[in-house]
């Protein structure tokens, strides 16, 4: 889990806690809070939160690869299913590369990853017109350390909801 996403989860959780008028002091450790407190079903069905939490908004790639791993395919099948349930939702697939490559090549490599992801979703029955894609190369890493544990989180395709999701 990336820091950014953890923080979003934690922030969402805090909102939930606040709405429930929970008197418990919120723990300063956002990471732990998010990890411990996140239960499936807390997010409103059909919302961005629901998608990210219960479906999984991202898949990961091996170094310099755009092949979809078995795990990635499983995530994408769940995404396709969810998208077929909420047919108003439109998405953009963001392709990303880790920082251990040159700028231009990584732009192209991340486009290749976004394309593979988009095509898989379309093959699963998601209308092509609902799925756009963009390639960010190495410009937007999610995890910030100079080690494989971070680079492996940065070699990713993220399905971002651009419209039509339910809001609370």
């Amino acid at each position: 889990m990336t820091k950014t996403v953890s923080f979003k989860f934690a922030a969402a959780l805090c909102c939930v806690l606040a709405l429930a008028a929970c008197s418990k002091k919120s723990t300063p450790d956002l990471e732990a809070n998010a990890a411990a407190g996140l239960g499936a079903g807390q997010a409103m069905p059909g919302s961005e939160q629901d998608f990210a939490t219960n479906v999984g908004d991202r898949i990961f790639f091996e170094n310099d690869q755009s092949t979809l791993t078995a795990e990635a395919q499983e995530t994408l099948r769940r995404q396709a299913q969810w998208l077929q349930q909420y047919t108003n939702v439109s998405i953009q697939v963001e392709g990303h590369a880790d920082e251990r490559g040159t700028r231009e090549y990584n732009i192209a490599l991340s486009a290749r990853r976004a394309t593979a992801t988009r095509e898989f979703l379309i093959a699963q029955g998601v209308e092509a017109s609902r799925v756009s894609s963009i390639a960010y190369g190495k410009e937007r890493p999610a995890a910030l350390c100079d080690a494989e544990q971070c680079w492996s989180q940065n070699r990713r395709a993220v399905t971002v909801i651009t419209g039509g999701a339910k809001t609370s």
């Binding site: 192209a108 486009a111 290749r112 394309t115 593979a116 390639a135």
Partner: peptide, 9 residues
């Protein structure tokens, strides 16, 4: 320049 076309450029 490069033009992207699917997975290729």
């Amino acid at each position: 320049m490069s033009l992207q076309d699917g997975g290729n450029a």
